[in-house]
Design a protein around this nucleic acid. Structure first.
Length: 702
DNA sequence: GAGATTTACCTTTTT
DNA sequence: GGTAAATCTC
């Protein structure tokens, strides 16, 4: 058979093997930048070229965006039929399947998906109902409870194991937690609710309990591919096993060194276990790197050499030359930001587009200072990771109303909606819900309720709103009606900052425009939350070329010409949360590995000598242990003297003994003597005697 | 019982 | 720099 694509020429031998092996189980171990995506794209094309109907191919990826992008590339490579390949995340697949098969385990077609915040609210509600809230103040907060439950489900272990391993300080509360968990499970079932974990659990239950469904699914998806397999958990592995049971045509791709989702139950050992799950697995390793220059790979290889557990794999490249990664030790965060902005402007001068430069960090808030600096210098940027649109209170308000349209018995939504009405607090809301939940038509019942005058008007307006919303309208039209109702509430509840928040509402309206039904709109909102903050949207509108700021997690799978990894201080990266726990430190290390392997040509690592910590204010930091480990592979950066003279003209080159000076870190002090032409010895009131380099220290006379 | 005000707390990462 | 429990006021 003649193929339209010249596979042998466009792929290396290992990639080609992965593309050609269409039948049976295949495990591809793909190092960073080894053309993993390319391999998947070509394999999709190959399958389609072989005549497999696209909808019979299933491509499971980590985000839906990733799936779309791969299918788009396949479509360009071969033809547009490739866009019809079934693709998405485990959660979106499970959602789709459960709409169809959920009835088998007692769920109707219009169950509601709870996002993390909703799940926490539900847990909170039950915690109060069970009287666990007020007894002792030691009882874990709702976020923690949700994490414990989620981890038990995803790792398929008992609550006791989770608490013992991760939260031993709550062992005393184990019984109460178990009781709460039971109630939570029952509550969701009774109210037609599923949280993220339930999507997986329930899909698994259907597959396990109904062999005929497995056979049907096997015929529906004849070829299965799973990307980022190192970030799947035990439950997802089981789902794959069941779905591929019929034919065994399953290929998983991953890199154990890039497993960074243990906190949500992922286990990189899944990769190693795969051949046991599917006997006869063909294993293919992709080790040649096409992304980064050798000096960057040397650094990356060093990072992973220090890893406690690794499944040897060594990246190499044929790309010659390249710059040694740069280390910049900054005085503080402001200095770090200034350094980055300077380098970015230089790079742009050299012709590197802004969109080819990224700044990566461990946690979303680490970039706050930098964001201010970039704004000051008019450098446009987008930020990925951190607070999502859907997590803001005002969007949740609006969404709660929509949720009621789909599921009038969604009591969590009712509670939120009712509490917004002036004159209604927790008690009244509860009483109202007791009344509504036994009614056949809660909306109609709303207008019949004999309300106290203090909130009767508000309740009437709400009933009126639902009357209008039940007409056959598009999601966008319904949302517009809803805004009319919500506006006065919005301005009352968020009186101090509603103009800022209003932009989010507009954005939600714009998103709604694309949808036919409220159900689809809500499901997508939960499964694929739009990340864009207001700042991002504005940047998108005004410039097409912008710098990328991203958490390392959100940077997975992406690459840039030049990459900055910032705030490499103990407590920041690695996160203080991970300190002292070996397994967590290992995960932080893999995270660092992911960060540095995003760079193609230039890599800059920065470390601030002090940083702001939420509790203690400005604190001194130690360089990240990861920096220590790779210091041989780094070239320290020294500011050229000229730039300093320009910037700090007002700083005198000498001080006289006895002068009172002020230092941004050490505070006030008295000059003892000059130690050299450019060094001064100062006795600080609180920090003791220090010798300072005038070139670096920002000493001011008082 | 609702609403306003104050206090305390704690901060990863995401489907 | 944000929210959630605790306390105060109407």
């Amino acid at each position: 058979m003649k193929y339209r694509i010249d596979y042998a020429n466009e792929l290396n031998p290992a990639q080609l093997e992965a593309v050609r092996n269409l039948f049976g189980p295949v495990l591809v171990i793909a190092g960073a930048g080894s053309g993993k995506t390319r391999t998947l794209v070509y394999r999709v094309a190959r399958l389609v070229e072989e005549g497999v109907p696209p909808e019979r191919i299933l491509l499971l990826t980590f985000t839906r965006k990733a799936a779309r992008e791969m299918l788009r590339r396949a479509a360009i490579l071969l033809d547009e039929k490739c866009e019809n390949v079934s693709g998405g995340t485990f959660h979106s697949l499970a959602h789709l399947m459960l709409r169809q098969y959920g009835y088998l385990i007692g769920y109707s077609r219009n169950f509601t998906i709870l996002d993390r915040g909703d799940a926490e609210d539900a847990i909170n509600l039950l915690r109060t109902a069970l009287g666990l809230a007020d007894r002792k103040r030691r009882f874990p907060r709702k976020e923690t409870i949700a994490s414990i439950f989620s981890m038990a489900v995803n790792k398929r272990i008992s609550l006791e194991e989770v608490v013992t391993e991760e939260y031993p300080h709550f062992l005393d509360d184990l019984e109460d937690l178990a009781r709460l968990f039971e109630h939570y499970v029952r509550y969701k079932q009774e109210h037609q609710l599923m949280d993220y974990d339930d999507l997986l659990v329930n899909w698994y239950r259907v597959l396990k309990g109904f062999p005929e469904v497995r056979r049907e699914i096997g015929r529906r998806f004849e070829f299965i591919m799973v990307d980022e397999y190192q970030d799947t958990n035990a439950l997802q592995a089981e789902i794959v096993r069941f779905m591929a049971e019929e034919h065994g045509n399953v290929m998983v791709v991953g890199d154990d060194s890039q497993s960074i989702y243990a906190f949500r139950g992922a286990n990189f050992k899944n990769i190693i276990k795969f051949p046991k799950l599917f006997p006869g697995t063909k294993i293919i390793k992709l080790e040649e790197n096409y992304r980064s220059r050798q000096p960057i790979l040397d650094l990356a290889n060093t990072v992973i050499e220090y890893a406690k557990e690794k499944y040897t794999k060594c990246l190499f490249t044929r790309l010659e030359g390249g710059n040694i990664p740069v280390l910049y030790k900054a005085r503080d965060e402001a200095d770090q930001s200034r350094f980055i902005a300077d380098r970015i402007l230089e790079l742009r001068e050299e012709g590197v587009p802004l969109s080819e430069i990224a700044v990566l960090f461990r946690s979303a808030y680490h970039s706050f200072d930098l964001e201010l600096e970039l704004a000051k210098r008019n450098i446009p940027f987008v930020k990925q990771g951190g607070m999502k649109l859907i997590e803001t209170a005002h969007i949740k308000d609006v969404v709660a109303h929509l949720r009621l349209l789909v599921n009038p018995y969604d009591m969590l939504a009712w509670n939120r909606v009712l509490l917004l009405i002036e004159g209604i607090g927790p008690k009244t809301s509860k009483r109202l819900m007791e009344y509504l939940k036994v009614e056949d038509d809660p909306f109609e019942a709303l207008s019949r309720y004999s309300a106290k005058p203090s909130f009767a008007k508000g309740l009437n307006k709400l009933a009126e709103l639902f009357g209008k919303l039940r007409q056959k309208l598009s999601p966008e039209e319904k949302l517009a009606l809803l805004y009319e109702y919500y506006e006065p509430i919005f301005e009352r509840v968020y009186y101090d900052d509603h103009p800022k928040r209003a932009k989010d509402l507009d954005q939600l309206l714009a998103i709604a425009h694309k949808y036919e039904t409220v159900e689809d709109f809500l499901a997508d909102l939960a499964l694929e939350p739009p990340e864009a903050s207001v700042a991002e949207v504005e940047a998108l509108e005004n410039e097409d070329e912008k710098l990328v700021l991203s958490t390392v997690h959100s940077a997975k799978g992406l690459e840039w010409h030049s990459v900055f990894v910032i705030s490499l201080a103990e407590g920041r990266f690695p996160s203080s949360y991970a300190l002292g726990k070996e397994e967590s430190i290992e995960e932080e290390r893999r995270l660092f590995y992911v960060a540095v392997t995003r760079a193609k040509e230039n890599l800059f690592l920065t470390y601030p000598a002090t940083y702001y910590s939420p509790g203690e204010g400005r604190i001194f930091s130690k360089p990240s242990r990861f920096l220590e480990e790779v210091k041989d592979k780094l070239k320290p950066w020294y500011e050229e003297e000229t730039s300093f003279i320009e910037e700090e003209e007002e700083v005198s080159s000498s001080f006289k003994p006895g002068e009172i000076v002020w230092h941004p870190i050490f505070g006030e002090g008295k000059v003892k003597r000059m130690a050299d032409i450019d060094k001064v010895v100062v006795q600080f009131t609180s920090a003791g005697e220090r010798t300072l380099h005038l070139k670096f220290a920002r000493l001011e006379r008082l």
